[in-house]
């Protein structure tokens, strides 16, 4: 198990699906993420990067563009089969 490896979303290579563990953001900035389905436990997958290098993330069939500063606040966990 790699529960708390301190991995952040920008460190994950493109096309790898990971699970969101924690959001390190103040509540007022977290809320929109939550409403858009970015919740602890959800599956995230960076599908590409914007020309400026910000991740474009697929969550539940929606594409979200997230500034990399914000993506850096998303702590994630690799799928267990990969960690093994």
């Amino acid at each position: 198990m790699s529960a708390e490896t301190g991995l952040r979303l920008p460190e994950i290579p493109l096309r790898e699906t990971v699970e969101l563990v924690r959001i390190d953001l103040p509540p007022d900035q977290m809320e929109l993420l939550l409403e858009l389905g970015v919740l602890p436990g959800c599956q995230l997958c960076s599908v590409r990067r914007s020309p400026a290098g910000d991740p474009i993330v697929m969550v539940d069939g929606s594409l979200l563009a997230i500034r990399r500063e914000m993506a850096g606040c998303l702590c994630v966990r690799r799928a267990e089969s990969d960690a093994a």
């Binding site: 900035q29 858009l36 594409l63 979200l64 563009a65 997230i66 500034r67 500063e69 914000m70």
Partner: peptide, 10 residues
């Protein structure tokens, strides 16, 4: 500046 988060519609 606050964060940027935007939905990209199909």
């Amino acid at each position: 500046p606050s964060s940027f988060l935007m939905e990209l519609p199909p």
